[in-house]
Lab assay of single mutants.
Amino acid sequence: MKVMIRKTATGHSAYVAKKDLEELIVEMENPALWGGKVTLANGWQLELPAMAADTPLPITVEARKL
């Protein structure tokens, strides 16, 4: 699914347009965010693609819901 990742004042957030859902990312498998699992505030887990740590945000990526 397409997910937009952006930086907020409190960390990172994910927006899933198909579900009209925006949630804070509360847990990251990798400190650089990319190439691992993230957990959203509502409990969803997404697998993000591997990208460079300095990838500019906001960005829309293809993520997989676990």
Rank of each mutant, 00 (worst) to 15 (best):
M1F: 14
M1D: 05
M1V: 14
M1L: 14
M1T: 08
M1Y: 11
M1K: 01
K2S: 12
K2P: 09
K2I: 15
K2W: 14
K2H: 11
K2R: 13
K2D: 10
K2G: 07
V3A: 01
V3T: 03
V3G: 00
V3C: 03
V3L: 07
V3W: 00
V3Q: 00
V3I: 11
V3N: 00
V3Y: 00
V3H: 01
M4C: 12
M4S: 10
M4N: 09
M4W: 03
M4G: 04
M4D: 07
M4I: 14
I5P: 01
I5C: 05
I5M: 00
I5A: 01
I5G: 00
I5V: 08
I5E: 01
I5L: 05
I5R: 00
R6S: 14
R6N: 10
R6P: 01
R6Q: 10
K7V: 08
K7L: 10
K7Y: 09
K7Q: 10
K7R: 12
K7N: 06
K7I: 08
K7M: 10
K7C: 08
K7A: 10
T8N: 09
T8L: 09
T8A: 08
T8R: 08
T8S: 09
A9C: 10
A9W: 07
A9N: 10
A9I: 10
A9D: 12
A9R: 10
A9K: 11
A9E: 12
A9Y: 08
T10W: 13
T10L: 13
T10Y: 13
T10N: 13
T10A: 12
T10R: 13
T10E: 13
G11L: 06
G11H: 05
G11C: 06
G11Y: 06
G11S: 05
G11N: 03
G11M: 02
G11E: 02
G11Q: 04
H12Y: 15
H12V: 12
H12L: 14
H12N: 05
H12I: 13
H12C: 08
H12D: 04
S13T: 13
S13G: 06
S13V: 13
S13Y: 15
S13A: 12
S13D: 05
A14E: 01
A14V: 15
A14W: 07
A14F: 09
A14S: 02
A14M: 13
A14I: 15
A14D: 01
Y15H: 09
Y15E: 06
Y15W: 11
Y15N: 06
Y15K: 09
V16R: 00
V16E: 03
V16W: 15
V16T: 04
V16C: 14
V16P: 02
V16Y: 13
A17M: 14
A17G: 10
A17Y: 15
A17Q: 12
A17I: 15
K18F: 15
K18L: 14
K18D: 15
K18S: 15
K18I: 15
K18M: 14
K19G: 14
K19V: 15
K19Q: 15
K19L: 15
D20C: 14
D20G: 13
D20E: 11
D20N: 13
D20L: 10
D20S: 10
D20K: 10
L21S: 08
L21I: 14
L21F: 13
L21K: 11
L21H: 08
L21G: 07
E22K: 05
E22G: 06
E22R: 07
E22W: 13
E22N: 09
E22V: 09
E23G: 05
E23L: 15
E23F: 15
E23S: 15
E23P: 00
E23W: 15
E23A: 14
E23N: 07
L24I: 13
L24K: 11
L24N: 13
L24S: 11
I25A: 00
I25T: 00
I25S: 00
I25V: 07
I25W: 02
I25G: 00
I25N: 00
I25H: 00
V26E: 05
V26Y: 04
V26C: 09
V26P: 00
V26D: 00
V26I: 14
V26T: 09
E27S: 13
E27I: 09
E27R: 10
E27A: 13
E27K: 11
E27Y: 14
M28Q: 13
M28C: 12
M28K: 11
M28P: 00
M28F: 11
E29T: 09
E29G: 05
E29F: 05
E29L: 05
E29N: 05
E29I: 04
E29S: 09
E29R: 05
N30K: 11
N30P: 03
N30S: 09
N30L: 09
P31N: 11
P31I: 10
P31C: 09
P31R: 08
P31L: 09
A32R: 11
A32C: 11
A32Q: 14
A32L: 13
L33I: 09
L33R: 03
L33Q: 03
L33M: 14
L33H: 03
W34V: 05
W34P: 05
W34E: 02
W34N: 05
W34Y: 02
W34R: 04
W34H: 02
W34D: 02
G35C: 04
G35S: 04
G35Y: 04
G35D: 06
G35P: 05
G35W: 04
G36H: 04
G36T: 04
G36R: 01
G36S: 04
G36W: 05
G36L: 04
G36F: 05
K37F: 12
K37Q: 08
K37G: 07
K37L: 12
V38R: 00
V38G: 00
V38M: 01
V38K: 00
V38D: 00
V38H: 01
V38Y: 02
V38E: 02
T39Q: 07
T39V: 12
T39F: 07
L40S: 02
L40E: 00
L40W: 02
L40K: 00
L40F: 04
L40T: 00
A41R: 07
A41L: 06
A41V: 03
A41N: 07
A41C: 06
A41P: 03
A41S: 10
N42E: 02
N42M: 02
N42C: 09
N42I: 04
N42D: 03
N42S: 07
N42Y: 02
N42V: 02
N42T: 02
G43M: 02
G43E: 00
G43A: 04
W44G: 01
W44P: 01
W44I: 08
W44Q: 04
W44D: 06
W44Y: 03
W44N: 01
W44K: 00
Q45S: 10
Q45K: 11
Q45W: 08
Q45N: 07
Q45L: 12
Q45Y: 08
Q45F: 08
Q45T: 13
Q45M: 13
L46T: 02
L46P: 01
L46M: 08
L46I: 11
L46F: 13
E47W: 14
E47H: 09
E47V: 13
E47I: 14
L48P: 02
L48G: 01
L48E: 00
L48D: 01
L48F: 03
L48M: 09
L48H: 00
P49S: 05
P49C: 06
P49T: 03
P49D: 03
P49W: 04
A50I: 12
A50P: 14
A50L: 12
A50W: 15
A50F: 13
M51E: 03
M51I: 08
M51Q: 06
M51D: 01
M51G: 01
M51L: 12
M51W: 05
M51F: 06
A52Q: 08
A52S: 12
A52M: 07
A52P: 15
A52L: 08
A52G: 09
A52C: 06
A52Y: 06
A52F: 07
A53I: 11
A53P: 13
A53Q: 10
A53W: 13
A53E: 13
D54P: 05
D54I: 06
D54C: 05
D54R: 04
D54N: 11
D54G: 10
D54Q: 07
D54E: 09
D54L: 07
D54A: 07
T55S: 06
T55K: 04
T55A: 06
T55E: 01
T55R: 03
T55D: 02
P56C: 07
P56F: 07
P56E: 12
P56H: 09
P56T: 10
L57Y: 07
L57C: 04
L57A: 02
P58W: 07
I59R: 06
I59P: 00
I59L: 08
I59M: 09
I59S: 01
I59A: 12
T60F: 11
T60V: 12
T60G: 04
T60Q: 08
T60I: 12
T60C: 13
T60L: 11
V61M: 02
V61R: 00
V61Y: 00
V61T: 04
V61L: 07
V61D: 00
V61I: 11
V61K: 01
V61W: 00
E62Q: 12
E62M: 14
E62R: 12
E62F: 15
E62V: 14
A63N: 01
A63S: 06
A63K: 02
A63V: 13
A63M: 06
A63D: 01
R64S: 08
R64Y: 12
R64F: 12
R64A: 08
K65S: 12
K65I: 15
K65E: 11
K65M: 15
L66S: 08
L66K: 06
L66W: 09
L66N: 05
L66Y: 09
L66V: 14
L66T: 10
